[in-house]
Design a protein around this nucleic acid. Structure first.
Length: 462
RNA sequence: GGCCCGGUAGUUCAGUCGGUUAGAACGCUAGCCUGUCACGCUAGAGGCCGAGGGUUCGAGUCCCUUCCGGGUCGCCA
């Protein structure tokens, strides 16, 4: 049943001739008493009269009959109303609608609401939306979308990325807790560089020079030594590097792991491989709809090949004629090598091991067979490095002399080094870039899509 | 930061050899249309061509500077 009701700017309901009429008063009263239903519930559950709240996703008038698509966090439903009832609606207003739930094959989702009353809850103040968001894809550049983040996140597809990201984090937390790890939070304002120093943000800390942590490295190692044995942290890391690429952020979420009493760095790869398998199982049940939205199907189990970096470099050179830098593979090399692994072994993942000592931080354990190399690894996923890890040096004297070998003054790392004087066990760890794994899992083109408010060399707002 | 490419309507883009009043699609506004779902039809509004300087009778178009964006390298998750 469709009534002729107009709306004034303040959002109250009036009849067409300006007199508030009894029926509408009644339905407004009902709206106040009724409990709000989410769109997904209305679609799923059989109930005659409903109250829904959400945003105006689309308005489409055919003669005197109006089709308004209302979007809330759970979905989109079609509202059918008289054209006069929705005359004052504009896209993206927040509204509430009371009406009758009707099963109708002609409705996009099979169910629609025949409106009795429409009320504006939150009006809009724009001449023009910055870009359309009610089509299959947003037709605006990523940069434009990021400038208007509260608009670009509105389509379900945009928000689905962060639902998946939440579950990646959730799986990380539950997997490592199940394996005896303790979640920690370490300081982000720190006094010294962990691995270099040039790429850190400086902070004025009450007149002293401080830095934003580029990694929780020192502190997570110290917590292994402090008796936790196994720790993990999910927190921001900061990099002041002067690059602007699809895979870099100045502020990103690092999922860090550090594990004591290991036999070798193989233990670290074992546990990370376990996490990847756990994660995929978790996502398949927790995010089935989101994965489908992105056309992603995950394997039931993943076995990750491990091979030395030098071997990968040789393959990239021999198969693709591309020379690699000493430090590893460049972006193109990582892509080519991932292609090779996909074709030869049918896997999206590969552990590259034994990076050269000169290209790894001073705390990395050298390879006993070749001191030029290290007990280290990267995890490459779909052509992108998503993890760096290694066994660490746990002997005080060895660590101290390695610092000197790297041209660093051990005095500058006193607080870190001192913690190695009290029986530090053999240990190691790794970190997974949360936005990177999210991006690759959903086959996104740019890491900024997997970040609510990305920070990069050019972007400090919003 | 180095190198390469770009910046034209709200958005995404076209714009020939430097030459009249700068175009399209979507979006927006008004009107018509009772089952739309990329609705349809008619009309309309919307531009300091990123900014600044230069060459020229004349610059969206050529040159310089600068800002912004895309790619890439070193580095990294």
């Amino acid at each position: 049943m469709i009534n002729s009701i107009g709306l004034n700017r303040s959002g109250s309901v009036w009849s067409g001739d300006g007199k508030q009429c009894r029926n509408e008063q009644k339905s407004k009263k009902e709206a106040v008493c009724m409990k709000r239903s989410c769109v997904a519930d209305v679609l799923a559950n059989d109930s005659s009269k409903v109250l829904v709240k959400g945003w105006v996703h689309n308005i489409n008038c055919v003669g005197k009959i109006a089709f308004v698509h209302l979007r809330d966090r759970t979905g989109i439903i079609q509202i059918v109303a008289d054209e006069s009832m929705v005359r004052d609606l504009r896209l993206e207003m927040s509204i509430e609608v009371t009406g009758n739930r009707v099963v109708n094959g002609k409705a996009p989702s099979g169910v629609e609401i025949h409106a009795e009353a429409v009320r504006i809850l939150g009006t809009v103040y724009y001449d023009m939306l910055p870009f359309g968001i009610n089509r299959k894809r947003i037709n605006a550049s990523l940069d434009t979308q990021l400038d208007h983040r509260t608009v670009s996140l509105r389509p379900a597809r945009s928000r689905a990325i962060f639902r998946v990201q939440q579950e990646i984090e959730e799986a990380f937390r539950s997997y490592f807790r199940e394996h005896g790890f303790t979640q920690i939070h370490t300081p982000k304002i720190i006094s010294s560089a962990t691995e270099g120093g040039s790429e850190m943000f400086t902070v004025d800390f009450f007149g002293r020079r401080a830095f934003l942590a580029q990694s929780p490295q020192f502190y997570k190692q110290m917590m292994v030594g402090a008796g936790f044995e196994r720790v993990f942290e999910i927190g921001h890391a900061y990099r002041a590097e002067l690059h602007n690429t699809w895979r870099h952020l100045s502020e990103y979420v690092s999922m860090d792991v550090e594990m004591g009493f290991i036999e070798s760095y193989e233990d670290l790869m074992d546990i990370e491989e376990g996490y990847i398998n756990y994660l995929f199982r978790h996502l398949k049940s927790a995010c089935a709809a989101e994965l489908e939205m992105f056309g992603v199907s995950l394997p039931d189990s993943v076995e990750i090949p491990r091979l030395p970096l030098a071997e990968a470099q040789r393959i990239v050179l021999e198969k693709y004629g591309r020379r690699s830098p000493l430090s590893g593979l460049d972006a193109e090399g990582e892509k080519l090598f991932s292609e090779y692994m996909k074709n030869e072994y049918g896997t999206d993942f590969v552990f590259l091991t034994k990076y050269p000592a000169s290209k790894r931080p001073m705390y990395t354990m050298p390879d006993p067979e070749n001191p030029e190399l290290t007990q280290s690894f990267d995890l490459i996923y779909k052509g992108l490095e998503i993890t760096t890890g290694s066994q660490r040096i746990h002997d005080y004297e060895m660590l101290k002399s390695n610092m000197e070998k790297f041209g660093l003054d051990p005095e500058n790392f006193r607080f870190y080094l001192d913690s190695f004087r009290y029986g530090m066990p053999p240990h190691g760890g790794f970190a997974i870039g949360l936005e990177r794994i999210t991006m690759k899992l959903l086959d996104l083109d740019n890491i900024r899509e997997a970040t609510l408010f990305p920070r990069d060399i050019k972007r400090l707002e919003p």
